[in-house]
Design a protein around this nucleic acid. Structure first.
Lengths: 105, 105
DNA sequence: CTGTATCCTTTGGGATACTG
DNA sequence: CAGTATCCCAAAGGATACAG
């Protein structure tokens, strides 16, 4: 889908966050800025490679900001841009629905 | 992700609708009951196999109802269950966000 | 600590042919 | 019309090793 023109706004949104990890990354960053290692730990079972590549995508799409501190050892902080934060209503709706679903199981 | 226990409601929701097609299928069914062929045509570029398998998943998860009419030629109607319809707020949020995103491009 | 590189496996999806 | 069956491909993801 990455190379296709979205035909509607829903598809536009899907293009940017519909994979296994991006929504979870956004959820973590909604609680505030996090270092790479913190992010990896808080998400849990994500691999380094996958976390990096998703962060790169999201940075390219303007959802995430990456700040590199010129230190040794390296120190990198990730945070949501305004655009990234504007995804919160979607996450909230997903949270509400997921909770309701679990109660019906 | 299909075999993993979701650790939070957001992940529960992701489990059920985070792929390339399910959200689009739901969007179509939110406008009302549709036959298999109508659904395929309105989504556009989806293959028969993929549409079928996604519908089967969604039926198993209680999002979609499948009604088979004993006719020749076959006649099958798909509609959202109440649970499926309850996803509407998520779709709405995705629509709003996608529109906003496009305006900023 | 925060990556990149490489290789491999799994999954989703596409194309085509065929069927009740 | 609404599928199923088969084969194939591409993309996502996992594991591991290595680097600045």
């Amino acid at each position: 889908m990455e190379n296709q023109m979205p035909t509607c706004p829903v598809e536009t949104t899907l293009l940017l966050i519909s994979n296994r990890w991006k929504v979870l990354i956004i959820r973590e960053l909604l609680t505030g800025t996090k270092r790479f290692g913190e992010l990896k730990k808080s998400i849990g079972h994500i691999s380094q490679k996958v976390l990096t590549s998703n962060l790169r995508d999201m940075e390219a799409n303007g959802l995430v900001k990456r700040d590199v501190f010129a230190e040794v050892p390296p120190h990198v902080e990730y945070s949501l841009t305004e655009l990234g934060m504007s995804l919160k209503p979607i996450l909230d709706a997903m949270y509400v629905w997921g909770e309701n679903f679990k109660n019906k199981q």
